[in-house]
């Protein structure tokens, strides 16, 4: 085991770095995607609600591995055969697109539920004072909604971090893919997968702990 770690530890740590980079970018974009579609779904406008609903349903209904193949292979192929434009997507870019859309759809649902959990009277009181819809949203409704959303958001972030492993299928050198290469050299799949598993476990445990502290702090600020 120690031999394996001294020999390939650095490689696996770098792969963990790549995994985290992909996860962090995806989370950032997922927040934007989620906020956008989440807001669309709470607006008093039927077409907006439909668009948000369709987006969420499609993403939820398609396995991410299919989405990954579609973005990585399908889209460049379509551009080549229809418009005769040749381009390739980097595995990192494709991975971030997939994860952002996937996590974004779940975030949209979390944000919608969070906003709807805030008593309608809060918005009415703000509007009755002459505040605009967006100002009421920003100053009154969202700050209260975010509190109820934090546990679900963190949960979703952890799922997204784990989902990066699915992107090994398009060849991004994240942790699982790198582990496979190591195994092809050492043939010791038992130990390598234990090491990889422990690495995920450590990172996710740290994340969960940070999340707990954050959550407690937020709930402590008032009252």
């Amino acid at each position: 085991m120690t031999g394996l770690i001294t020999e390939y530890g650095k490689l696996l740590l770098e792969a963990m770095g790549q995994t985290l980079i992909m996860a962090l970018y995806s989370l950032l974009f997922a927040c934007i995607v989620g906020l956008f579609f989440g807001m669309l779904s709470v607006l008093k406008n039927k077409p907006c609600n439909w668009i948000a609903q369709i987006f969420v349903d499609v993403i939820r209904g398609v396995p991410m591995i299919v989405l990954a193949f579609f973005v990585y292979f399908g889209i460049p192929y379509a551009f080549k055969s229809i418009f005769d434009i040749r381009f390739t997507i980097e595995p990192l870019q494709a991975g971030i697109i997939c994860l952002s859309l996937n996590c974004g759809a779940y975030m949209a649902e979390i944000i919608r539920a969070g906003i709807q959990s805030v008593d309608i009277g809060q918005m009415e009181a703000a509007r009755s004072l002459g505040l605009t819809y967006w100002k009421s949203m920003r100053k009154i409704v969202l700050p209260q909604a975010i509190k109820t959303m934090i546990p679900s958001i963190i949960n979703q972030f952890i799922i997204t971090l784990k989902d990066t492993s699915i992107l090994s299928v398009i060849g991004f050198p994240e942790l699982v893919n790198t582990a496979k290469s190591v195994i092809s050299i050492t043939h010791d799949s038992f130990k390598v997968w234990i090491i990889v598993g422990v690495m995920y476990l450590i990172v996710i445990t740290i994340l969960s702990k940070v999340a707990k502290i954050l959550e407690r702090k937020l709930n402590h600020d008032e009252k």
Partner: peptide
């Protein structure tokens, strides 16, 4: 039901 802003 008053509707005071709970976050403020």
């Amino acid at each position: 039901h008053f509707n005071l802003f709970n976050n403020l």
